[in-house]
Each structure stands twice: as structure tokens, then as C-alpha cells.
Amino acid sequence: MSHNSLFAGIDVGSSFTKVVLLDPAKNIYGSDIRFSGTNLRIAAEHGLHTALQHNNLDSRIKRIVATGFGRKNVVIDNQNISAITEISCNAKAAQFYYPNKALSIIDIGGQDTKIIKTRDGKRISFKMNRKCAAGTGMFLEELALKLRVQPTDLNSLASESSNPNSISSYCTVFAATEILSRIREGAALEDMVRGAFHSVVKRVMEIDVLENEVVLTGGVIAHNPTIVEIFEEELGRSVFVPPFPQLFVALGAALYALEEGTSI
């Protein structure tokens, strides 16, 4: 294997497509994050090209592993692609960053939230949210839309509050309506947004018991560090957040690609 070789992980999520390129020494050569949009194949192709820094370096790619909701839609010319679920890729990346630790990994994505458990370097279980957007990125996106703020502004709003206003509704649609009503009655926007973040954390903690070390990953964590604070408050202990939480699953896929590419 040439030291110029590259190994790609492409995570085609319901909201965003993420790409990570690794060199043989497991250093990140390039990465990309973009909207998945309606054409998942194009999103993956363009993401890969951007991660290659627009150089015509396709021949350096030795292996690609696709993952995420759209993993079966990835087609790249002249490339052999295998598909592995985002659950396995997430656990793979966690074992890379936190080797030999028993972990509860939380991945909060656009439409899915998962809790994956590993022990002795092996994945032992996983649980996913039920068919409901409560506790996912979609809940926060819907809320931002109703409040007429950018989803990326939610974190700074929540960080300004020290008095979260709790939300009783479970349903995404009813929760957004409840928040608007409370604001009309005089509640502070910041307190309501922090309350919504608490709601996300509560929903996640209902999926499974969080044992051992907790790792937080996914786009919602990457853009909302206040949620990490809330998790630590609720758990009463520190949690791990990897360097690039939104690229975590794509990194796991790239690690699989490296394994597959070097075992050929």
C-alpha cells in the first residue's frame, strides 16, 4: 500500500452528508459537510470531491465505506464501495478515540437518536428513538422555524439562560406551539430555548440507561455545546465529546475503509 493512499468514509445522513478522508497513518487528510438535499448520490460525490480539496486525486482513494441513512445510494465512478450501518461506524470511531473503555455513545442526528454501548472493544447493544422526532435534530429545526431564528442561533440563546422553562409537550409540533404560547405570556425566549434543550436531553435519556463513560456525538452536539452542559448537569459527571462530533460516523466509516483497504 502506498503512503499516498486515501480511505474515505461517507456518511449520508437525513440532513447532512459528511465525508472524512484518512491517510494510512489515520490522519485526517480532508473532510466535508453539506446538505444531503434530494439527490444523495450527488451530495456524496460532491462531498468527496471537496474533501479531496478539488484536486484530481481520485486514483489515490483505495477504498470507500458508505454509511448513514443514504448509504445504499452512494455510487462513485471506478470505486468499490461497501455499506456499513452508522451504528457500527459510530462504535468504530468511539473505539478509536477511547480505546478499551466501556462506553455509552449518544448520537443525536437529524431524524434519529441512538444510544450505542460498547464493552471490551465490542458493540454490545444499540437503541434508536421510536418513530418520532422528539429528541432529534428535527425537533430543534422545527422549533427554530417556529421562532423565526436560525437553527445555529439556538445555542447562543440557550447559553444566555440560567433558568430553563420546562416544556410539558412531548410532540414536536405541540412543543413548538407551547413555547410560542409561553413567550406570548411573557416567558423569556432564552429560557424557553434552554427548556427545549432540556427536553431533548430528557428524551435521549429515556432511550436507554447511560452506563460507564458517556460520549456525545452528532450534528446536534457539534452545533449546540450547551446540550453537553445539560447532559453533564443531568448525569452529575463529565462526558466525552470527540474533536469533530458531526464527522464522527464518517470517521468510523473511513476507519473501516482503511481496514478493508489494507486487508486486500
Partner: peptide
Amino acid sequence: EEQTKTNIEAFIEQLAGI
């Protein structure tokens, strides 16, 4: 369908030790 398929696939990956 997608969520169910992913769950089943991930479960088999777990059994396979992937």
C-alpha cells in the same frame, strides 16, 4: 422502512462482531 432495515442490518453486524 429505512429505520427498520437499518436496525436489522446493525443488529446482524453486531452478531457478526463488526
